[in-house]
Computed example of a mutant assay.
Amino acid sequence: MAKQRRKRGTAGDKTICLPIADGLDYATLVDDREVFRQYLDEQIAAHPELFPEGIEGGYRFHGWVESSRQQIKTRRILLPRTKEAYQLRPDFVMPYMSETAEMADKALYLRKHGLGFEGIAYVLGRSEMHWYRLCQSLGRASIVGTTVKRETALPPI
Rank of each mutant, 00 (worst) to 15 (best):
A2K: 14
K3Y: 14
K3A: 15
R6E: 15
K7V: 15
G9W: 07
D13V: 06
D13N: 15
T15A: 07
I16W: 02
C17Y: 07
L18I: 14
P19F: 10
D22A: 13
G23D: 03
G23Q: 08
L24N: 13
D25C: 07
Y26Q: 00
T28A: 15
T28C: 08
T28F: 05
L29V: 03
L29S: 02
V30R: 00
D31N: 12
D31Q: 15
R37F: 04
Y39E: 01
Y39P: 00
L40T: 04
D41N: 14
D41G: 04
Q43I: 05
Q43P: 02
Q43D: 09
A45F: 03
A45H: 03
H47Q: 14
P48S: 04
E49S: 14
L50S: 09
P52W: 03
E53A: 13
G54H: 01
G54C: 03
I55M: 13
E56G: 12
G57P: 02
G57F: 10
G58Q: 05
G58A: 09
G58M: 06
Y59L: 06
Y59C: 01
R60N: 06
R60S: 09
F61N: 04
H62T: 05
H62P: 03
G63A: 05
V65I: 12
S67M: 08
S68V: 09
Q70M: 14
Q71F: 08
I72H: 09
K73G: 09
R75A: 14
R76V: 08
R76E: 10
L79P: 01
P80Y: 08
R81K: 12
R81F: 07
T82A: 03
T82I: 00
K83D: 13
Y86A: 10
R89H: 11
P90Q: 10
F92P: 04
P95V: 03
T100Q: 00
T100L: 01
A101D: 10
M103E: 12
K106N: 03
L110Y: 11
L110N: 00
R111A: 10
R111I: 05
G114L: 04
L115H: 10
L115V: 12
E118I: 11
G119Y: 05
A121N: 06
A121E: 00
Y122N: 14
V123W: 07
L124Y: 02
G125M: 06
G125H: 04
S127Y: 05
E128W: 09
E128Y: 09
E128G: 08
Y132W: 10
R133G: 02
Q136G: 01
G139K: 13
A141P: 00
S142T: 13
S142C: 09
S142L: 12
G145R: 14
T147N: 08
T147G: 01
V148C: 11
T152N: 07
P155N: 03
P156H: 14
I157F: 13
